[in-house]
């Protein structure tokens, strides 16, 4: 597979390690009420779609960036890839 790295262009998937669902970006607040339930969901529950999936890849043999890759798990077509850092910052409301 080839991953379209947003800064480096198409790269061999063998340069990467795969972590899993990009929902891992949304880590709950460990000090908040209901944290146990929230963490249970966060750690164990996954949708596992046959189709478009947003997932985390680590460019281990590359620039060591984490990427959020949008990939169709059935056809393997990759629809896009972003720096996970950018996705995470945007989710937290923007400014660095």
């Amino acid at each position: 597979m080839l991953i379209p790295h947003p800064l480096l262009g198409l790269r061999d998937a063998q340069e990467f390690t795969y972590l899993g669902d990009a929902s891992l970006l949304n880590r709950p607040d460990g000090m908040a009420e209901g944290a146990a339930e929230a963490f249970y969901d966060y750690v164990y529950l996954r949708d596992n779609p046959a189709g478009v999936h947003r997932e985390l890849w680590f460019h281990e043999q590359g620039d060591r960036s984490w990427l959020v890759v949008t990939r169709n798990t059935v056809t393997h077509e990759i629809l896009g890839a972003e720096l996970a850092r950018d996705v995470a910052l945007a989710a937290k409301g923007g400014a660095q």
Binding site: L8, R11, E15, Q61, G62, D63
Partner: peptide, 10 residues
């Protein structure tokens, strides 16, 4: 310049 894999090494 880039980092890549070469015979299972970075």
């Amino acid at each position: 310049a880039t980092r890549t894999g070469l015979e299972h090494m970075s």
